[in-house]
């Protein structure tokens, strides 16, 4: 005891910290840490709110100048400063539609393969490989699309489509015109490859959430694998699958770099998918740094706002559906 007091006197002039003080310090750090984490969590909301406010603020000039006509006019003329968003909106929707038409069935079939057919030892490696496809940065898809995929389509697939569908009334307009290589079809196909892994991994996860008892019962009454998938797995997971598809759609709508390389960046609406077009994100990526004049850049920000609103709605629906499924599983 004597030693200890001597030590205390030697090393600290103040009294040794009392129990109360330590407790107070602990309580203080606890409260501080609580508020720190809470602040960071609210920061997530601030990011989203800030993005919306900043985009609205930036697009005010264009929205005031053009009003609602911005949404449905097709001019895009930096010289006369007349801007309308319908051509990029059209391109965004068409490329995403092409992508979903291809990626949804294929993605679901891969998920069926992984959950029902694949030998257990191959399941993990194939699943990882598909997910690696999702990890490849979009600029890689872009450069590959520009130098490899587009020339390939131009030489083989596009002339074939033009020849085959030329005599058929409606399809001949969808596949009309010279094979440029770059264009909306190419962009849609690349988007399909890009969203494929998202759709696959989510539908695989929701397929795995089906209680084995249900499947076993169906097999027990003599269903084939396909019938189990079609009449048990799919109805049970419908909500989750739609959620996964919407998530993929959200990606496709907002994808920038891969599309910018191969879309051709032409502000026009044409019925032919082989023609060059543009999307919202490609227009922003291509023109924003070179935009001269406040109205021009403001119009581009307004395009960004439109894109954000569209993807927000799509993603919100997707998350809502996936959340519903989770609640069901829990």
């Amino acid at each position: 005891m004597v030693d200890m007091t001597a030590e205390g006197a030697a090393y600290s002039v103040a009294e040794p910290p009392s129990r109360m003080k330590i407790l107070n310090r602990l309580r203080l750090t606890d409260t501080a840490f609580y508020w720190l984490t809470r602040l960071a969590a609210i920061g997530v909301l601030i990011i989203l709110g800030g993005a919306i406010v900043a985009l609205i603020d930036g697009s005010m000039l264009a929205l005031r100048e053009f009003g609602f006509s911005f949404l449905y006019t097709a001019h895009w003329n930096p010289v006369t400063e007349k801007f309308g968003a319908i051509a990029p909106i059209y391109g965004t929707l068409v490329t995403s539609l092409i992508a979903m038409l291809i990626a949804v069935p294929i993605g679901l079939m891969i998920a069926v393969f992984l959950t029902e057919l694949c030998p257990a030892s191959l399941r993990r490696p194939i699943g990882i490989a598909i997910e690696l496809l999702a990890g490849i940065p979009s600029i890689i898809y872009g450069i590959w699309g520009l130098f490899v995929f587009a020339p390939f389509l131009q030489r083989t697939v596009q002339p074939f489509l033009i020849d085959v569908f030329g005599p058929i009334p409606v399809l001949s307009t969808i596949f009309a015109g010279p094979p440029y290589g770059i264009g909306m079809l190419t962009a849609g196909l690349i988007l399909a490859i890009m969203v494929l892994p998202f759709i696959t991994s989510i539908s695989r996860d929701v397929f795995e959430s089906v209680p084995p008892v249900l499947k076993e019962a169906a097999y027990g009454v003599g269903c084939t694998t396909w019938e189990v998938v079609r009449y048990v797995v799919l109805p049970y997971t419908r909500v989750g699958v739609i959620g996964g598809v919407m998530l993929g759609l959200g990606r496709a709508l907002g994808e920038t770099m891969a599309v910018t390389f191969v879309i051709g960046n032409a502000h026009r609406i044409s019925a032919s998918t082989l023609a060059p077009g543009t999307t919202i994100s490609a227009t922003i990526a291509n023109e924003f740094t070179e935009a001269v004049g406040d109205l021009y850049s403001s119009s581009l920000v307004a395009l960004g706002l439109i894109l954000f609103v569209i993807t927000f709605i799509v993603l919100a629906i997707a998350r809502y559906m996936l959340m519903r499924l989770e609640r069901k599983a829990a």
């Binding site: 909301l45 993005a51 985009l55 960004g304 993807t311 993603l315």
Partner: peptide, 28 residues
Amino acid sequence: RLTSVIRFINDILLSAPSIVIGLFVYEI
């Protein structure tokens, strides 16, 4: 309750178009 809202918003930010993030930072 705040948590489920933040989780929802965070999930949306997770797949929000990155070009919009670029525009946002340009503006601020």
